[in-house]
Design a protein around this nucleic acid. Structure first.
Lengths: 188, 188
DNA sequence: GTTTACATGTAATCCGTTACATGATTGA
DNA sequence: TCAATCATGTAACGGATTACATGTAAAC
């Protein structure tokens, strides 16, 4: 029971490898072409991170490595059993109210990655928690707003931005809960 | 013309000091109590950053230091002329389309800090640029969405989240441009 | 025949977190 | 006097960026 602690970046890599076995370059391409391409990991971040995951026994360089008559080394990583367990535990971690705003993007990544690792019920619970956390956060911002002179300059306007954005996020969460309730994930 | 390069964190500290001369502890309190308290800088980040700003000649420990019969050292920093120039240049920097999503929070910080350092016209231009960048980004997301099966699981749903949030941000930007046009900043 | 995509890596540097250390002042 | 607040700092550690290095394969 050695508590495996990973960085957010490592968890995202592990999650992507859980979705589909990938080489470092594959992962780079995923970041480059998918909408999450707002973050582009450098080689100096990516390859050492993969090595750390391997060293910790969460992924392994699988059979596909060095195939396809590629003379150049090519390591295709796949998750180990421990890797899947670790990732699943991360996905199940509660949504913390006090950091929901800071980690909003990360929570969305978790949502994407829990599709095949958690049960529909656990996904529902996650979204419910997320909605609650967002509601609490917007309520807090509302209080700040109420305590601020509405015509007091840019700080107040920026506060309105935070409110608008997190209300939209909350709205999405509620909509998604409803959508997943009426049309359950395809198990066809 | 030694190009002074600062981290985002350093620029935020410098910006806060430009708004009002502050000690390290003052800054800590600002982070703790204002809505931007989602980020709580540690002592190990804060004090070395202030030292770096001082070493680079952007702030100086002002007259208020060690006053108030505080035996314990207390350094109240105020911006130097070079500090104000550097900060102003940062505030004037263009909004980059390709990083608007990643740096959205930072752009809002810039908006707050440009209130007293830039002209209303420059603020307007900044918001116009921000709106354009957000429009470009949402258009890009729209294209991704159009190319994705609408019932294809969590990735698509997460994309919808990004769209909702950035549309809300864009809406705020347009609203704010309008608001600042009708009621110009108080110069009373 | 040279650029572009594929594919992985290292070294220097810098910065942030965590945890610990120190000491004064105020109020219960 | 004991806790909380004020107030600044250091040391160990880890990880990210930048820039550089290396080499193959495909395409033009």
């Amino acid at each position: 029971m050695t508590e495996v602690q990973l960085t957010a970046f490592e968890h995202i890599l592990l999650g992507l490898i859980c979705l589909a076995p990938s080489s470092g370059y594959d992962l780079k391409r995923i970041f480059a072409t998918s909408p999450m391409g707002i973050y582009q990991p450098s080689s100096g971040a990516l390859y050492p991170a993969l090595r750390r995951l391997e060293r910790k026994g969460l992924v392994r360089a699988g059979a596909a490595s060095r195939a396809d008559r590629h003379a150049r080394a090519r390591y295709v990583y796949e998750p180990t059993e421990l890797g899947v367990v670790t990732q699943t535990r991360w996905l199940r971690a509660p949504v913390r109210r006090d950091t929901v705003a800071r980690d909003l993007g990360l929570h969305l990544m978790r949502f994407v990655m829990m599709e095949h690792l958690l049960s529909p019920d656990q996904v529902r619970r996650f979204l419910r928690d997320l909605a609650d956390a967002l509601a609490a956060f917007t309520a807090e911002l509302d209080q700040h707003a109420a305590a601020t002179d509405p015509s007091s300059g840019h700080a107040r306007l920026a506060l309105d931005h935070g409110l608008a954005v997190h209300r939209a996020s909350l709205q999405w969460t509620e909509n998604t809960i409803a959508a997943l309730a009426t049309s359950p994930p395809l198990s066809a």
